[in-house]
Amino acid sequence: MRTGGTDERSLVVAAEAGDRRALDDLARVSLPLVYTIARRALGGLPDVDDVVQDTMLRAVRDLRSLRTPESFRPWLAAIATRQVSSHLHRRQADAERAVPLEEMAEPPHADAENLVLACVELSRGRRQVVRASRWLDRGDREVLSLWWREAAGRLTRAELAEALATSVAHAGVRLQRMRSQLDLCRSLVAALDVSPRCAQLTVALDGWGGRPSALWRKRILRHARCCSACARAADGLSPLDRLTACLALFPVSPALLATARRPSGSRVR
């Protein structure tokens, strides 16, 4: 069950008072925030889980030092950020100790470079997802915006389904369908980005004004399915799940959010 601001405040107060169940619930609903921060900072590095665990242990240990229950999330985010920084410093120190003395003429930058490369890759992938989303139909764009928030822990699947005025089971079907369409649109964007562009694709784009549309999406994808060069352009795309570190790219319309926050049992008019 997702907790809103008021419920989270109650959990903080109860956890500070020694309620073990409240502490467990608070840790559970806080995990998505901590994972988001760690993944955004560490990208593809293999130590995200360690940073998350260290953050949660420190938060549980120091919870009574929290000044006000309302400041819990900023306080937790600050702890996560410090843990990421400490982790990166430890990795750098370990790398320096592992380098033989004769190779120390220049300081080792392998970890820093790997981190930068990982961040660049993710940043490029996120921009590509944004561009690909513009090729989706309006309904799929709405599903996408809600899915990001579910992945961030801001919505439960039940709230997402309620926002879409459908059942939880059918919401899952719509999510899968949207993700399939988004992957196709990502391959479309990848084909358009190839330089130099496929000559046959250039011919197929004759008359295109540069704006995404359902008609041109169909034409470009039809070409890409038959063109090995354009199909290869999508081979290096990062898995979509790996890009969920950027969870607030797509704004949700006020109407959708209002529906998602409507109490259970309310009907959509």
Rank of each mutant, 00 (worst) to 15 (best):
88 L>K: 07
99 V>K: 13
93 A>H: 11
113 E>K: 06
82 R>G: 06
107 P>M: 04
109 H>F: 02
79 I>P: 09
79 I>T: 02
78 A>T: 12
109 H>T: 09
87 H>C: 08
79 I>S: 09
104 M>S: 02
83 Q>K: 15
91 R>M: 15
110 A>S: 08
79 I>V: 12
110 A>T: 10
86 S>T: 10
111 D>Y: 11
112 A>K: 04
77 A>L: 00
80 A>T: 01
93 A>S: 13
80 A>V: 03
93 A>P: 03
101 L>F: 06
98 A>M: 05
100 P>E: 10
80 A>S: 01
111 D>K: 01
110 A>W: 07
110 A>P: 02
84 V>R: 08
102 E>W: 05
111 D>A: 08
110 A>L: 12
97 R>T: 05
85 S>A: 15
92 Q>T: 15
101 L>Q: 03
96 E>R: 12
77 A>H: 02
82 R>Y: 04
89 H>V: 14
105 A>M: 04
113 E>H: 11
83 Q>W: 07
99 V>I: 11
102 E>F: 09
75 W>I: 03
96 E>S: 06
89 H>K: 12
99 V>N: 01
88 L>E: 15
81 T>V: 02
100 P>S: 09
97 R>V: 04
108 P>G: 06
89 H>A: 15
84 V>F: 13
100 P>L: 14
80 A>Y: 00
94 D>V: 01
113 E>S: 07
87 H>T: 01
106 E>S: 09
102 E>G: 03
97 R>A: 11
85 S>H: 14
92 Q>D: 15
99 V>A: 07
108 P>D: 11
111 D>S: 04
112 A>L: 10
100 P>G: 13
96 E>H: 11
103 E>D: 11
84 V>K: 11
87 H>F: 10
102 E>V: 15
86 S>P: 02
86 S>A: 14
91 R>L: 15
101 L>C: 00
